[in-house]
Design a protein around this nucleic acid. Structure first.
Length: 723
DNA sequence: AGCACGCCGACT
DNA sequence: GTCGGCGTGCTC
């Protein structure tokens, strides 16, 4: 009779022991079905302890041990254990998040992908021809050579069929992908000297852990560097993990990877991938069959037995941080995982996060630079338009209007960037004080004139636009401010001959809509694009030569200390859209603060100067990355209950907090009300990550014991992005 | 989180 | 007299 220690998907910071006659160490990492309280749950065996702290008589037996699926590997369990420790969440919740739902239920995994057609690789043919000491593996190899490509299920019935996994592991055989086009042996782009040096540097230490911060402006050829490094890893028989930001709407990198490695087994993991395919990809990766896993933050949890390289593209992107549930940072976990598996890690960005920048400064990461634009001729020129003394027409300055007119004449594309969708951010009554406040949030409902709706962009509240003021009956309600729809409307009136295309979350409702829009833009069916931040990323538009930025100043007023960093990153990114190919690009930024250092750095496109300045400010103010933070937040139907909880949470440890730990006072969150709940937060800070972690462990122990009023919910966020 | 138990208020 | 409110406590 053995004891199994099980992680269950419940918000209790413990593991649970069960008895199980048949379990052995081979079963660590396997799913089990167990009775838990009144109900049944699926968990994962994380250990096989010799004895339990629980009275043996109280141990319930495991209901079912699922042996149909291979066990999760030890390093994967270690990763989930680390996430549980670092982010202070129960390991069972981490596992529930990391494991595809189908797998946790251990349904029969679809055979379409698990029964691949197997064939010899060149290495396999070589091994076969060379002969060597007879073994099961070589015997099976000879059979397969004679029989030609064979389904795995068939091969398994052969005398030495069990050696199949061994052959796959040695990369003597591979899964033939039916839809593979013939390998395009087209000429690879010529590398610049810089690219060559970067690749050599990383490749020189391919055998162990090393973190690289690859800094290169848009068009400097970061992707080509990734591809060459991937190529080398694959040639060495290793798997590669590539993380991309949550704009999985852009299939761009995926296409380039697929195009470059047509023979590789590539697993894509993003929000557009259905559960079934996700499970199959997970299993293929775990079995060592997949060569490349390309996905958004969740992909960091893919088990990869032959892992040889991790790439994090656009490492500064905030979408690597999960903002609910288990609040992990996939970028930070990538560093941990690379160290754990002793493989190199490449963090790429044109505008690195200040956290990574600091790590590079401290020598924890090796900085690599790509300064030359590999593709286009020049960087775009950036012009700041001082809007303080000029009259704007439809939100546009004369200079921007003139620039747009010139592009129309030259039949080039323009992009107007306005990070505010809808027609106007608020509807107001000039006669009284009424505004279109959301009934559930401390935010205003946005006017969507197209479908005559008022919508809250935070909670989704949706009503029709009233015909008269609900307060005073005035029929003349005025939309205030300007969103993408209104900007579009003004442009249509001003440039009636131009083809104007709005690209925001309303226009690109689904992946399908978005791909259609992209296709139209590429086909040259638009002269002026009006877009939100979804236009900032990915995609190069060859005829795009003008980017106009409207309403950038908001970030300068923002209370969030990271707002300027984000603005700079976004501006650099959106500016990078302009003038690729042979056409020179121009970026016009309308601002009331043309002298602001941020805009000055932007004009010179001097990322280093901006980073130095921003870091100096952060150090002065004692903000991250010079200090480490955690945020305890609570919400309840009534603000006072949330504040009350946080006060008690603070009181339960305040007197025991070691020196160097700063506990702030509980305060209402910036957006206090969200979806009928009122929210408050309590910040903890320390100059030492270890000290903060030690404090958090003790605090969490006490918090779980602290009684919670029934309608209060709380959570801990380690390394929060929004403070 | 669920789901029990348990102890006080207004209802057939 | 019961149905049911939600405070408290436990789940191997």
């Amino acid at each position: 009779m053995s004891i199994v220690r099980v992680a269950l998907p419940v918000p209790i910071p413990q593991l649970f022991d069960y008895s199980c006659d048949s379990a052995t160490h081979e079963d660590i990492g396997r799913c089990v079905r167990v009775n838990f309280g009144r109900r049944q749950e699926t968990g994962v065996i994380v250990d096989l302890p010799t004895e339990s702290d629980i009275d043996p008589a109280r141990l319930k037996p495991v209901e079912h041990l699922l042996r149909e699926v291979p066990p999760l590997p030890g390093d994967w369990l270690a990763l989930t254990a680390f996430v549980a420790r670092y982010y202070h969440v129960p390991q069972g919740e981490v596992i529930a998040l990391a494991l595809p739902p189908d797998l946790r239920r251990a349904d029969e995994v679809d055979d379409r992908d698990t029964d691949p057609l197997l064939a010899l690789t060149p290495a396999g043919r070589q091994a076969h021809d060379e002969g060597g000491r007879p073994s099961k593996a070589r015997h099976l190899l000879a059979q397969l050579q004679a029989a030609g490509p064979t389904r795995k299920s068939v091969l398994r019935t052969w005398p030495e069929g069990t050696a199949c996994a061994d052959l796959l592991r040695r990369r003597w055989i591979y899964a033939v992908r039916p839809q593979n086009p013939a390998r395009t042996a087209g000429a690879l782009p010529t590398l610049t000297d810089e690219q060559g040096q970067v690749i050599d540097t990383v490749a020189a230490h391919a055998g162990g852990f090393a973190a690289y911060l690859l800094q290169g402006v848009t068009g400097a050829g970061k992707t080509e560097v990734y591809l060459r490094l991937i190529e080398r890893a694959l040639a060495a028989g290793r798997q590669v993990l590539v993380l991309v930001p949550e704009i999985a709407l852009t299939p761009q990198l995926e296409q380039r990877v697929v195009g470059r490695f047509p023979d590789a087994d590539i697993v894509a993991l993003h929000s557009g991938v259905a559960d079934g395919a996700r499970s199959r990809g997970f299993v293929r990766a775990m079995k060592g069959e997949a060569d490349i896993v390309l996905g958004t933050r969740l992909a960091i949890f893919t088990p990869l037995p032959r892992l040889g390289l991790i790439v994090v593209d656009e490492e500064h992107d905030p979408s690597y941080k999960q903002q609910e549930g288990v609040r992990y940072s996939a970028r930070d976990l990538a560093v941990w995982r690379a160290r754990q598996r002793e493989v190199p890690l490449v963090l790429g960005s044109a505008t690195p996060s200040l956290e990574s920048w600091r790590h590079a400064e401290q020598g924890r990461y090796t900085r690599l630079r790509l300064t030359q634009r590999a593709i286009a001729t020049h960087l775009p020129t950036v012009r700041l338009i001082d809007t303080r003394r000029i009259k704007l027409e439809d939100g546009l300055s004369p200079a921007l209007i003139k620039a747009l007119g010139e592009r129309l004449e030259r039949r080039e594309q323009s992009l107007l960037f306005l990070n505010r969708r809808g027609y106007a951010p608020v509807l107001s009554c000039p006669a009284c004080d009424w505004i279109s406040a959301c009934p559930h949030c401390s935010a205003n409902c946005v006017v969507h004139l197209k479908d005559r709706r008022l919508r809250c962009h935070h909670c989704g509240h949706d009503t029709s636009i009233p015909h008269a003021c609900p307060e005073c009956g005035n029929q003349d309600l005025k939309p205030l401010g300007r969103g993408t729809q209104k900007l579009e409307e003004g442009l249509v009136a001003r440039f009636p001959e131009a083809r104007i295309l709005r690209v925001d979350r309303d226009a690109a409702r689904s992946r399908k809509h978005w791909l259609e829009l992209l296709a139209r833009i590429h086909a040259g069916e638009a002269d002026i694009l009006v877009g939100t931040q979804m236009m900032a990323k990915g995609h190069d538009f060859p005829r795009l030569t003008l980017v106009g930025v409207i309403g950038a100043d908001g970030a300068l007023y923002a209370a969030d200390f990271r707002a300027p960093e984000r603005l700079f990153q976004q501006m650099m990114q959106v500016g990078g859209r302009a003038g690729r190919a042979a056409l020179a690009g121009e970026v016009l930024i309308q601002t009331e603060f043309p002298d602001h250092p941020l805009f000055q750095c932007l004009q010179r496109q001097d990322t280093d100067a901006f980073a130095r300045m921003a870091l100096a400010e952060r150090e002065e103010a004692n903000f991250p990355p010079f200090t480490f933070q955690a945020m305890l937040s609570a919400d309840a139907p009534v603000l006072d209950d949330a504040l009350d909880f946080l006060t008690r949470a603070s009181d339960c440890i305040r007197s025991d907090a070691p020196g160097g730990i700063f506990l702030y006072d509980p305060v209402p969150m910036r957006m206090t009300r969200l979806a009928r709940r009122e929210r408050a937060q309590l910040l903890v800070e320390s100059a030492s990550r270890a000290a903060l972690q030690g404090f958090l462990s003790e605090w969490m122990r006490r918090l779980y014991r602290l009684g919670t009023a029934r309608d209060v919910r709380w959570r801990m966020d380690v390394d929060p992005l929004d403070v």
